[in-house]
Design a protein around this nucleic acid. Structure first.
Lengths: 118, 118
DNA sequence: CTCGATGTGCAACCGAAGGTAGCAGTTTTT
DNA sequence: AAAAACTGCTACCTTCGGTTGCACATCGAG
């Protein structure tokens, strides 16, 4: 149920630092690891590791130009990720509605013990 | 920009296993750690740790009943989480649109090579 | 061409987090 | 009272995020 094949995508996005790197890549089209490292609170090697993970998950691609390696986001895969997020959010929203409805129903039927939780 | 105060929320949700536990909690209203452990591919202790993290982030609450401890989701906080997800998804979607537009534009007019640094 | 500067990759290391197993404490049940 | 069922705590292992240091490649100036 929760274990969709998007799981790799999810764990790639799940890390806040990685998400930060991804955000930078999404904002600026094609940049190098060093460029990213200057705009992020951790070292270039850490950035590099995150880029490797992102690349392995298919979220970004690389292009070597001279001594630099330029990374850019893969629109299709990122779109897939956003869909996964939106989908889960929608599911939870829906479940939440049910929960609230149940809670109110229980609260309305105060035939048993009248107790206020929350 | 990415470092919102929802960051704790994000890292709590970010872990796939934890997300799985949360999903179960959202689906079934109020259950125990052992009950969850039977429906998840890892041990009860692991579940317990995840529950602790989720509770610390405010996403779930606990209620002791006899020898059991029943956990339930906190609707308000979960709603906040879903908003964070939806928000990020929307942002990426928007950036993606820009990227696609730029790509097409660049492809059309191959004259300029100017790039923006910050 | 040579040398320094810049950008990258690799390996070792450290601390935190996810996961497991084992044992002790408590409540329920018989 | 004793066994069963849940929970909590501790110890331990492995993985991951992060840092440091060093070697390699490329660019630019002399």
């Amino acid at each position: 149920m929760t274990a969709t094949p998007d799981d790799e995508l999810w764990s790639a996005i799940g890390d806040p630092s990685r998400c930060q790197v991804l955000d930078l890549l999404v904002s600026h089209g094609e940049v190098s690891a060093s460029w990213l490292a200057e705009r992020v609170p951790f070292s270039r090697q850490a950035v590099s590791k995150h880029l490797a993970v992102l690349e392995r998950s298919g979220l970004i691609g690389r292009r070597k130009q001279g001594r630099e390696v330029l990374y850019q986001v893969q629109p299709g895969r990122l779109d897939q990720a956003t869909r996964a997020m939106t989908g889960r959010a929608a599911l939870w929203d829906q479940r939440l509605a049910v929960i609230k409805r149940l809670a109110e129903a229980t609260h309305a039927a105060t035939k048993e013990n009248s107790r206020n939780d929350e």
